[in-house]
């Protein structure tokens, strides 16, 4: 795949030299960043709709926090600081599956349980990260928390691409069943849907996705990108098709704009922050639109 990325980078660079594209495209990392944006936008926007329906935003936040611990463990175990993927995937999968198992086997309410897990993962992650960043490089913390798009490597794109393909291959054929089991588990079971298994499959999907996006959006902000575009889409839409497509478009536009705008105007803000701020702007607009148009509709009726 690296040759493909290289070809894309060279095409963009040629465009920049010929001045058909903005000057910033002469840099390889800009092309990398935009490639990532094009991958995570649709992915997070699409899967975000399911996160919203299943009310799992808080759950994915906990997984995001666990990714910090994953990075810490990776550095301690001697993985590369820039790509401690084994530790991140390993720890986050363990964390996500344990959280889901506990959720199924406890009488605690969901928000209490996830709140505890979230707090523990944040405490553990921040302690471990501060501990290792004192030894390695203080910028790790910032990069892990809020994303660091400038340092995206071909490895990162490969990981992201693999996760995107896996999520599409598994998620698309199971979409209807997952939706039905979150609406009414009994009905889903009667129709032969393996409700519990699908729950675990979905947890694995969000976990892989979160880890693959940490580099670009940041551990604490991935959850926001799963939640906000889908929530914004839901404000306006009344069909599944519109919901998923709008969420994908809003998420992709947020990613691309959040990557492009800080680079274009030399703003020293992290990519994750910029992406989420733009997504949040969409949410605000759609909420206002819903309030205004909703009132018109009611007045007419």
């Amino acid at each position: 795949m690296n040759e493909v990325y290289e070809a894309i980078r060279q095409t963009l660079q040629a465009g920049a030299h010929a001045q058909t594209l903005p000057e910033m495209f002469q840099y390889g990392f800009v092309a990398n960043a935009l490639l990532c944006g094009l991958l995570i936008g649709p992915l997070l926007g699409g899967i975000g709709t399911m996160v919203v329906v299943k009310r799992m935003a808080f759950f994915s936040q906990a997984i995001g926090n666990a990714a910090m611990t994953g990075v810490g463990i990776g550095v301690l175990l001697g993985e590369s600081v820039a790509a401690p993927y084994y530790s991140m995937f390993g720890f986050c999968l363990l964390f996500g599956l344990l959280l889901n198992y506990t959720r199924n086997h406890t009488k605690l309410t969901q928000d209490t349980l996830i709140g505890v897990f979230l707090a523990v993962s944040l405490a553990l992650g921040s302690s471990l990260l501060l501990f290792v960043s004192a030894k390695v490089n203080t910028h790790i913390l910032e990069a892990v928390l809020f994303g660091s798009i400038l340092t995206v490597s071909d490895t990162d794109i490969n990981v992201l691409l693999a996760v995107a393909l896996l999520c599409a291959l598994v998620g698309l054929p199971l979409f209807n069943q997952m939706l039905l089991s979150s609406m009414n588990p009994s009905l889903a079971r009667v129709r032969g849907v393996p409700v519990h298994l699908l729950e675990y499959v979905f947890v694995v999907m969000i976990t892989l996705l979160t880890v693959a996006c940490v580099k670009i959006v940041g551990a604490v902000l991935v959850e926001a990108l799963l939640l906000i575009p889908a929530a914004a889409a839901r404000n306006l839409i009344s069909s599944v098709r519109g919901f998923v497509l709008t969420s994908i478009v809003l998420s992709t536009v947020s990613c691309l704009a959040g990557i492009y705008i800080p680079m274009r105007w030399d703003l020293a803000v992290p990519s994750g922050g910029a992406i989420i701020l733009i997504a949040a702007m969409f949410f605000l607009l759609t909420t206002v639109a819903r309030a205004v148009f909703g009132r018109f509709r009611e007045a007419r009726a």
């Binding site: 698309l172 054929p173 979409f175 209807n176 939706l179 129709r191 889409a233 009344s238 599944v240 098709r241």
Partner: peptide, 17 residues
């Protein structure tokens, strides 16, 4: 945002609604 038609699609086909 799930319509009546979406619901019927959801329960009767594999293709995502």
């Amino acid at each position: 945002p799930i319509s009546v038609a979406d619901f019927m699609a959801m329960i009767s086909q594999r293709r995502p609604a």
